[in-house]
Design a binder for these strands. Sequence first.
DNA 1: ATTAATGCAAAATCTTTGCACTTTC
DNA 2: GAAAGTGCAAAGATTTTGCATTAAT
Lengths: 140, 140
Amino acid sequence: MLRSRPYTRAADLLKLAGLRPTRQRRALARLLFDDENRHVTAEQLHAEARHDGAEVSLATVYNTLHQFTQAGLMREVMVDPGRSYFDTNTSEHHHFYYEDTGRLQDIPEESIALAALPKPPLGTAISRIDIIVRLSETPR
Amino acid sequence: MLRSRPYTRAADLLKLAGLRPTRQRRALARLLFDDENRHVTAEQLHAEARHDGAEVSLATVYNTLHQFTQAGLMREVMVDPGRSYFDTNTSEHHHFYYEDTGRLQDIPEESIALAALPKPPLGTAISRIDIIVRLSETPR
DNA sequence: ATTAATGCAAAATCTTTGCACTTTC
DNA sequence: GAAAGTGCAAAGATTTTGCATTAAT
């Protein structure tokens, strides 16, 4: 007898986010969300997808990263002028940025305690607090 | 009798930084350092300089901003993918970023107390900590 | 004179867009 | 079949570069 379609976490995730589970989105979602949290640039993810045999154009990777971000599945991290990083960890947390290699690494929210946060100016609300701890390699 | 050349803070600043006090650099330095701290993009500063009658090319503005940064007179702030901001305040401090207008505003270092800073991974040292408090306008 | 800085236009990046074609619902 | 998504190549935007000219030491 017929069995239901194989379990596809990627497709389910996409549906929940209100995005059509197209072949390209499923492939990218698998790369991004199947294992642990990831930090990628569009170029990196595109290379990885192609390497995996997924046929996706770079434009679609950009579109998809923005759609995922807008859908709340990812967030954008700004650490490098002229190159956007996207992070699959959407919970409150911060980052180490290895200036030499371009690698990003999460810092759990709790491990940086913010005291005495200034209140936002009138008419505005804090939408997000980004903390980047920039690291350089110590010679020797 | 002959008097010494008029006092030119900009030229002195440049000399101290090891940069030749050319007409363009003096003009930009005056705009940047004469009054209070400033946050500018290359495009903004270029427009401002031209508006002031200074003849400077955009390429030179870019060069100059990077030279000033390398000389320790400014620092670069990353808040917007695809647009670099430069800040004349080089002391330790952080930023409010008004997402709607693109304006940057300093937050004094003391007004954010960092507790429990995680130690940098072996072989690396913290080169800088950037904190961006992103603000959005509250409707109403 | 020597060395460094500038301008310009061209190139390099990264990212977005327009539109015909394809896929999903 | 209607609506949404994709690919491609072209266009945008920002930033960098090469090299002849100009300016500072």
